[in-house]
């Protein structure tokens, strides 16, 4: 009992003793990582966003005072709001489509014979062996006016004139859904695969039609996978730059592109920093709220 460390006098050693405790280094590694590669860069960006543009190297200065001028500008120019909003919209819709495409794939994989599953999993990961950029470029070849898709549709007589897909939002949706599909399929597969199939038998034994059982049992039990997959697709999709740049057109407004233009064309580091900070807040706040909600649910369930 003495070794359990729960005696009152032992707790008096407090934080210091606990940090030196044997588990501390293991826990410290991810925190150190986050501190070094997330928090520190974020603070740098945050500080730059408070300065002013300058013709210098690096191109910003704090001589004009440390203020929220850049943030005020973001609210005044409709371009930024529309970019944020349109990014959310494109990312949101893409996420829903990815979910609708990914769920049957993950479901099929989880129900496949055990000896097939490793191979199917491999096939889902396989595209990562080719560069992301090359795969997006390949879509240009498929979607352009004289591309493979139009050729195929014309040869089977489904269309008379080639469709305009490239350089529209449709191409952006296709690109995002294609590129992020594995990030949706993998967590969905993980949660569907560990589901006990006797639950569906029990539901059907109790008079529940298999389709209804899918909705009442399978979907709720795969919810953790759905949520993880949606986060993994939505968050990077909001800030996506390559796909809208290569596949999108002039109508495509996404915050990643706006940021790029601000940073490289206008060389306005402070303003683009402000854009990045707001983007981060817009994404992080709902996630934190959601996490707290989940934690409270878990606590209530014990």
């Amino acid at each position: 009992m003495a070794s359990s460390g729960t005696k009152p006098e032992k707790t008096g050693q407090g934080l210091f003793a606990r940090i030196l405790g044997s588990r501390a280094p293991v826990i410290a590694v991810p925190y150190l990582w986050l501190l070094l590669f997330f928090l520190a860069p974020f603070l740098i960006v945050l500080v730059i966003s408070l300065g002013d543009i300058a013709l210098a190297i690096p191109p910003f200065t704090f001589k004009g005072g440390i203020d929220l001028e850049n943030y005020a500008l973001l609210t005044q120019d409709a371009l930024y709001w529309r970019s944020y909003f349109s990014s959310m919209q494109i990312a949101g819709l893409s996420t829903i489509i990815t979910l609708l495409v990914g769920y049957p794939i993950a479901y099929g994989m989880a129900r496949a014979p055990v000896q097939w599953r490793a191979a199917l999993l491999m096939l889902v990961i396989l595209p990562f062996w080719t560069s992301f950029l090359i795969r997006v470029y390949a879509w240009i070849g498929i979607l352009k006016k004289e591309g493979l898709l139009n050729l195929a549709l014309e040869s089977i007589g489904m269309i008379d004139a080639p469709l305009t897909i490239l350089n529209t939002n449709v191409a952006v949706y296709i690109g995002i859904v294609y590129s992020y599909l594995p990030f949706m399929v993998l967590p969905l597969y993980a949660s569907l695969e560990k589901m006990d199939r006797s639950l569906l038998e029990a539901a059907s034994d109790l008079g529940c039609h298999p389709l209804k059982a899918f909705w009442l049992i399978t979907v709720p039990l795969s919810l953790p996978g759905i949520i993880a997959g949606c986060f993994l697709v939505f968050i990077p999709a909001v800030g996506e730059f390559v796909i809208p740049d290569l596949l999108g057109g002039s109508e495509t407004l996404m915050i990643g592109k706006t940021l790029w233009v601000e940073f490289f064309s206008n060389r306005d580091w402070p303003l683009s920093s402000a854009v990045a900070v707001i983007l981060l807040l817009v994404l992080v706040i709902p996630i934190v709220l959601f996490q707290r909600h989940q934690a409270r649910l878990a606590e209530r369930d014990g």
Partner: peptide, 17 residues
Amino acid sequence: PPHRRPVNMMFQSYALF
């Protein structure tokens, strides 16, 4: 099919939702 049979079964593994 199972959902239309006039029997109910208690599973050895319980199969609680």
